[in-house]
Design a protein around this nucleic acid. Structure first.
Length: 348
DNA sequence: AAGGCGGGGAT
DNA sequence: ATCCCAGCCTT
C-alpha cells in the first residue's frame, strides 16, 4: 500500500538537497539572532540585510547589550535600512525581554507576538526556527508559493485573502521538522518561486501546482490595485557654522524618519526666510542647492536643500537641543538616507 | 478595515 | 519608471 507524499514531505525533501543553509542567521541559531534577522528582513531583501546583520551582531551580540544601548546607536546601525520604527521597536523589545522575561525569549507565538515589532508571522518564524515550535509563517515568499500552488485569486492585502492564506499555511505546517520546513518555504519563494520567471521546471511542487497548470504562474499573487503617488515638496535647512559643522535636530518618534536626526524642515524657501528671521532676528543669505527627488512607497518627495552659511555658531536654536555634525568626524547618529547623502555631499 | 511607514534591487 | 520585498502598528 502506498501513501501519497504530503505537501510538507515534498518541501522537506527539497530542503535536504537544495535548501540554503549558510546565511549568517542560519549559523549559531538562537532566538536573538533569528529575531534580529527577521525584523531586518521585513520588507527588505536578503542581500541588503546581510551586511547590516553582521554589523549589528558585532556590536550587539546578545539581547542584554542591545537593551543597554542608546537609541541613537541602534538607529545609527539601522541607517539606510528604512522603516525605522523597526529599529525603535527592536530596541524597546530588547528592553522588555530583559525586564519582563529576564532576557529569555518567551516560548509561545502568542507571547512573542505581544512584543513590540513582532507580529504573527515574525513570531511564527522565531518560534519555528529557533525553538522548534509548530508555527506557521506568512511572509512575502510564502504568500507567493501558496497563491500559486492553489491559484488563489485576489490581492493578498485584502482581509479575505489574508485569512485564507493563514488558514492554508497553518494547515500545511507539519508536526515535525519545523525549522527546516519554515526555512524551506522561504527558500522556495526566494530562489525558485520568484516574482518573475519562476523556475517551475525544477520546482518539486510543480506536478500539483495550480498556478503552473494555469500556464501563467506569475499572475499570482494578483497585484495590488495601483494608484498614482502624490508629489510632495519640502525644504531642508543646511545651517553651516565655521569649520563646516552642520546643524541637525532630532525628529519626533512618530511619522516619517521617526527618531532620526535631520536638517530642520520647512515647507519652502519663503518659510525658510521667516524661520531664519525668527531664530536669529536677521536676514541671511540662502543658497539653494540642487533639488532632488526621493521616492517612498506611497509618495514622491521633492527635496530642496537650502545652504545657509553662518558667520558664527549659535549657542542654541529653537527649543530642542540640536547637534552640530562634523562630516569629517561623523557622529554615530541615525540618519535618513537623503540627509546622509547631503551630509556626505558637504564633506568635500 | 485602511492607511502610514524607507530604501533598494530587479525588471 | 514600476513593482515589491523574511510586516507591523495606529487609527
Amino acid at each position: 500500500m502506498t501513501q501519497a507524499f504530503s505537501f510538507s514531505d515534498v518541501v522537506l525533501a527539497w530542503y535536504q538537497q537544495h535548501g540554503r543553509k549558510h546565511l549568517p542567521w542560519q549559523q549559531q541559531i538562537s532566538p536573538y539572532r533569528v529575531w534580529v534577522s527577521e525584523i531586518m528582513l521585513q520588507q527588505t531583501q536578503v542581500a541588503t540585510v546581510i551586511p547590516y546583520f553582521e554589523r549589528f551582531m558585532q556590536r550587539f551580540p546578545d539581547v542584554f547589550s542591545l537593551a543597554r544601548a542608546e537609541q541613537d546607536e541602534v538607529l545609527h546601525l539601522w541607517t539606510g535600512l528604512g522603516y525605522y520604527a523597526r529599529g525603535r521597536n527592536l530596541h524597546a523589545c530588547a528592553q522588555q525581554i530583559v525586564e519582563q522575561y529576564q532576557g529569555e525569549f518567551p516560548a509561545s507565538v502568542e507571547q512573542l507576538a505581544a512584543l513590540p515589532g513582532i507580529g504573527r508571522s515574525t513570531a511564527g518564524a522565531i518560534a519555528a526556527i529557533s525553538m522548534g515550535i509548530r508555527a506557521a509563517i506568512l511572509d512575502g515568499n510564502v504568500k507567493r508559493v501558496l497563491t500559486r500552488f492553489y491559484a488563489i485569486e485576489g490581492w493578498p492585502g485584502t482581509t479575505a485573502v489574508q485569512k485564507q492564506l493563514w488558514d492554508i499555511a497553518e494547515r500545511l505546517t507539519p508536526d515535525h521538522s519545523h525549522r527546516e520546513y519554515t526555512q524551506t518555504m522561504m527558500d522556495l519563494g526566494a530562489t525558485l518561486c520568484t516574482r518573475s520567471k519562476p523556475a517551475c521546471g525544477i520546482c518539486p511542487l510543480q506536478p500539483r501546482c495550480k498556478g503552473y497548470q494555469s500556464g501563467k504562474p506569475s499572475q499570482f499573487p494578483n497585484s495590488k490595485p495601483k494608484k498614482e503617488k502624490p508629489e510632495k515638496h519640502t525644504a531642508l535647512l543646511m545651517l553651516e557654522a565655521p569649520g563646516g559643522l552642520l546643524y541637525l535636530e532630532q525628529r519626533p518618534q512618530t511619522g516619517i524618519w521617526g527618531g532620526l536626526w535631520s536638517f530642520p524642515e520647512v515647507s519652502d524657501e519663503q518659510a525658510a526666510r521667516l524661520w531664519l528671521k525668527q531664530q536669529f532676528g536677521m536676514e541671511a543669505d540662502i543658497e539653494p542647492l540642487q533639488r532632488f527627488r526621493h521616492t517612498f512607497s506611497h509618495y514622491h518627495l521633492h527635496i530642496q536643500p537650502l545652504k545657509i552659511r553662518l558667520s558664527h555658531q549659535p549657542g542654541h536654536i529653537g527649543e530642542q537641543s540640536g547637534h552640530w555634525y562634523n562630516p569629517r568626524q561623523p557622529s554615530e547618529l541615525g540618519l535618513a538616507a537623503p540627509v546622509k547623502k547631503l551630509l556626505h555631499l558637504s564633506d568635500i
